[in-house]
Amino acid sequence: MGLVELAFSDWIGTITLNNPKKLNALSEELIKDFCDALEELKRQSVRVVILRAPAGSKIFSAGHDMRELPLDGRDPLTYTDPLRLAVRTIEYFPAPIIAMVEGSVWGGACELVLSCDIIIAAEDVTFAITPAKIGVPYNISGVQNLIITGGTHICKEMLFAAQPFPVKRLVDAEIVNRAVPIDQLETVAQTLAEQISKNSPLVISLLKEEIRLLSTSHNLSPETFERVQSMRRSVYDSDDYQEGIKAFFEKRPPIFKGK
């Protein structure tokens, strides 16, 4: 678990993303370490998990590791993509996961945080979902998760504008549970974790699964799924997709031509 730190005490586990040199980018290696840490906490029968970045972080996570996105016409966000694996692992984990957010959240890391059961954030945090800015075709599961968590209109604004959202707006929209002063963040998250840990773990595990099933009970028809996949394929096969990734590494605004 070289890219995350793991600790647990009194039924509470803590996972700290710890790759500051790459801004905690969600690389395949970091996601593997994260999922391994959750598996270990499951073996320890923890009753609640806190997910965080190191104290003092300016960036919680920079999202997808752009260096791992394919340039050969392959779908960049498949069912086995590291982010999809991380989200499913969070969703199926039998205990609540609290995202304790210090530092800004970018790109795919927004979905990672929003997939957690409870979000406690410092009041100066911003969230930015940026696939439209870099030309990456977000997939159905990702968009569905954002809609379930944030609602259609907030989801559209965040995805279409790809600009930082102040956490206060997300609290007002009931997407983030609480925004607190930075010097109170750890205390608030730890107190909530302790409250949860004293309740029935069997009931909480059941409630988490019931909520997951109820929130994902609207299925797409095979025809609709195939149509959306075809639209996505036209994006990751496009010149704009190549341009978005090239511009990112050249540290310049991309010039999208819509083809």
Rank of each mutant, 00 (worst) to 15 (best):
S141R: 03
L41Y: 00
K246M: 14
R252M: 08
S104T: 10
V143I: 15
R52N: 15
E194N: 09
T149C: 09
V49W: 04
F249M: 12
F249C: 11
A62G: 04
E186R: 01
K208C: 04
T216P: 01
F34W: 07
G56C: 14
T216R: 00
T149F: 04
E157Y: 03
L170Y: 14
R88Y: 04
P96T: 10
S238N: 09
V113A: 06
Q44H: 01
V188K: 02
Q184W: 01
Y138W: 13
P76V: 09
T126V: 14
A25Y: 02
L185H: 02
N177Q: 08
I245G: 15
M231H: 15
K246F: 13
P20R: 09
K198Y: 13
E243T: 12
I211D: 00
K32G: 12
A55E: 15
E40V: 08
Q44E: 05
L207R: 03
I97P: 02
E210R: 00
G63N: 07
P82D: 04
R232M: 14
L202G: 05
I118D: 05
Q195N: 08
F165P: 03
T130R: 01
P254S: 14
T191H: 04
K198F: 12
I134R: 06
E123P: 00
P253R: 12
L77M: 10
A7V: 03
V101N: 03
E111I: 15
S205Y: 14
C35H: 04
W11R: 11
N19L: 12
D72F: 09
A109S: 15
R47Q: 15
D75M: 05
I148P: 06
